[in-house]
Nucleic acid binder design. Structure first.
Length: 589
RNA sequence: GCGUCCAUAGCUCAGCUGGAUAGAGCAACGGCCUUCUAAGCCGUAGGUCGGAGGUUCGAAUCCUCCUGGACGUACCA
């Protein structure tokens, strides 16, 4: 579609130059770049629109008159006349495309390229590292992580679809005082219990002790100092503490990996802060030697941020230990050595904007040119219809609990529709529906905005939801199965694109043709919501199309074959787009 | 205080680099199942795009100010 628009843009520019000559104006004043290409508000007006206001000044003529003159020139171009019909609507020049060739080409390329249809080259070969999730090992994932994971995974897939060489990385926060708190509570209260002995998912088991520490510390002022003692012991490689730390981290990480598997998230490389945190300290000390940073009398090391209109920031505590920022400095440098990326994206909540501003600046100050290619993809908070999630009030929505709730609702829906026989494994289908509901709902909203997650709404099978989109794929699959059964009846038919003349068919063809553009833009903007919007658009159009235009129930085998071809192409594009936003494809539901 | 981000229908969200009467879904009301899954489709109603200026032939979109909200501004992460 982009190519088609570009062709028309050139044609209009050419016609404008001819008009310029008629008006005795220098034709070089008309540049193709200044010709704006748009889509008319309604399909009846045409498929491509050119507003001609900008030329009114150059031509000293009313835009409507220019439109008429350009239209006249275009009708004389035989090539243009063959590609579409030009019509003037006031100051707009609209083109109604002759769909036959576009329909034929689009269906052919979709069915020929299959999974690759929509893939672009805009980032061909670019090495992009993307960091997301970054859980702590003292508790399970919550709803906020789910938005992070959905965004990270989706952006990674979208960048990959634009040709980038993507590496997804996770940074597990497995050290620090908060980790020691759950360890200490376990040591004190667990009496040797294990996730198995208590029948709990292992990360939830660890989380229980983190909560327990919190309760204990409210009653006993000795709790906090003891946790600090434990951190010291950990840093001194105390064998007993290290052993406990390993065991509990393993529990948490195993549990979290189960959650990743359910929601469709994965990583190419996992970093652990326990392994990278010392690196940052070394880099800061190097910077101190070079005079990039300075030391206070108490021994703490600082960076002056006045160059970016900020105050100053501590990089090493007076006792010489690192901070969050220090660690991220080390991790970034290590990563760039491991895999020299050309771009690095951090998917982290917007509350850490300041942190990344400082981090990028510090890396730049240290002389790393690649610091310019670091990007913080920040996103807003996820709240519930009941209000904000607050960990102190225990209103944080656990990721697994939420998923389970969604899955149960989906299973209930399948049963209430008497579809158990049809879908086969109900729980498996329900899990796929839950995943679609979750990812679609989370990605539908532009990242920068705070959002409200409504579980009931997300799982609904009608409306603008993941399950609705999935349902369209299932409907097409079902239709194609029926077609395969009756194939012989239509053996006389041929694909004849001129038969696709209904307005819904025209819309569908244009949508199919636009898909590669949507993928490209989503990649440029790091924004999956362009894909979700597209998916809903094409699904709704398809839904209307097959409601009004029978595909298989048709006497003309040519119509059947032609529509089946169109429908196949739609299914292919749906599947390609599903993948980009984490919606599992279901053949039956 | 200062900084960053957000503000569109009752609710949840779209609205592309400024362009033709601002779009969906949910909720409400009303239609449509001897025909490819009614988990659907169609229609009705609902908006001075937070407010005020400005730039422009043209602003939900760009600029300034104001209001409201979120988040930062730790030797926490």
């Amino acid at each position: 579609m982009e190519a088609v628009k570009e062709q028309w843009k050139q044609r209009v520019a050419e016609a404008l130059r001819e008009v310029a000559v008629d008006h005795q104006i220098d034709p070089t004043a008309v540049e193709a770049e200044s010709v704006v290409v748009e889509t008319p508000p309604t399909p009846e007006l045409g498929d491509i629109a050119f507003p001609l206001f900008p030329f009114a000044r150059i031509f000293k003529t009313a835009p409507a008159k220019i439109a008429a003159e350009v239209a006249e020139k275009l009708t004389l171009h035989s090539e243009a006349a063959a590609a579409g019909t030009v019509q003037v609507a006031g100051p707009y020049l609209n083109v109604a495309l002759k769909m036959v060739s576009l329909a034929g080409e689009v269906c052919a390329s979709v069915l020929d390229e299959r999974d690759s249809y929509g893939r672009g080259q805009s980032l061909q070969g670019t090495k992009v590292m993307i960091e997301f999730s970054c859980p702590n090992t003292n508790k399970p994932l919550h709803l906020g992580h789910l938005r992070n994971d959905a965004l990270g995974e989706s952006v990674a897939r979208i960048l990959g679809a634009n040709g980038a060489d993507v590496q997804k990385v996770n940074l597990i926060n497995d050290r620090g005082i908060h980790i020691c708190k759950s360890m200490l509570a376990y040591k004190k209260f667990a009496d040797g219990a294990t996730p198995e002995s208590e029948g709990l998912k292992s990360d939830h088991f660890v989380g229980k002790y983190y909560v327990k520490f919190d309760q204990w510390s409210k009653q006993d002022p000795q709790a906090e100092p003891q946790a600090r003692e434990m951190l010291k012991a950990w840093e001194a490689d105390d064998p007993e503490v290290t052993e406990l730390w390993r065991r509990m981290n393993r529990w948490t990480i195993e549990g979290i990996e189960t959650t990743y598997a359910k929601t469709g998230v994965s990583f190419d490389k996992i970093y652990y802060e326990s392994q990278t945190f010392k690196r940052g300290r070394e880099e800061v000390l190097k910077g101190l030697e070079k005079g990039t940073f300075y030391k206070e009398a108490d021994g703490s090391v600082w960076v002056d941020l006045s160059e970016i209109d900020l105050d100053r920031k501590v990089l090493l505590r007076s006792d010489g230990t690192s901070l969050y920022l220090t660690q991220d400095i080390g991790t970034a440098i290590e990563r760039h050595q491991d895999w020299p990326f050309e771009r690095m994206i951090y998917v982290v909540a917007s509350e850490q904007r300041y942190h990344f501003k400082v981090l990028f600046h510090v890396l730049k100050k240290l002389g790393f040119g690649w610091a310019d290619n670091l990007y913080h993809l920040s996103y807003g908070m996820v709240n519930l219809p009941e209000g904000k999630m607050k960990s102190r009030e225990g209103t944080v929505v656990d990721a697994d609990d939420l998923f389970e709730q969604l899955q149960a609702m989906a299973a209930e829906e399948i049963r209430s529709k008497d579809r158990e026989e049809h879908v086969g494994d109900v729980e498996k289908a329900a899990a796929a529906v839950a995943q679609a509901a979750l990812n679609y709902y989370l990605l539908q909203v532009a990242p920068a905005r705070d959002m409200i997650f409504n579980p009931e709404e997300s799982i609904s099978f009608n409306g603008n939801t993941g399950p609705y989109l999935q349902y369209m794929g299932a409907r097409i699959s079902s239709m194609l199965r029926k077609y395969e059964d009756r194939k012989a009846e239509f053996s006389d038919g041929n694909f004849q694109p001129e038969l696709l003349e209904a307005s819904e068919e025209r819309s569908l063809i244009k949508l199919l043709a636009e898909y590669p553009e949507v993928v490209r833009r989503a990649g440029e903007e790091y924004n999956p919501n362009l894909i979700t919007t597209y998916l809903y658009d094409i699904s709704r159009t398809f839904s209307k199309f097959y409601h009004d235009h029978p595909v298989l129930h048709n006497d003309d085998p040519n119509v059947v074959i032609t529509r089946v071809t169109l429908v196949r192409a739609i299914l292919q594009v749906l599947q390609n787009a599903y993948f980009l936003v984490g919606i599992p494809f279901l053949e039956r539901m």
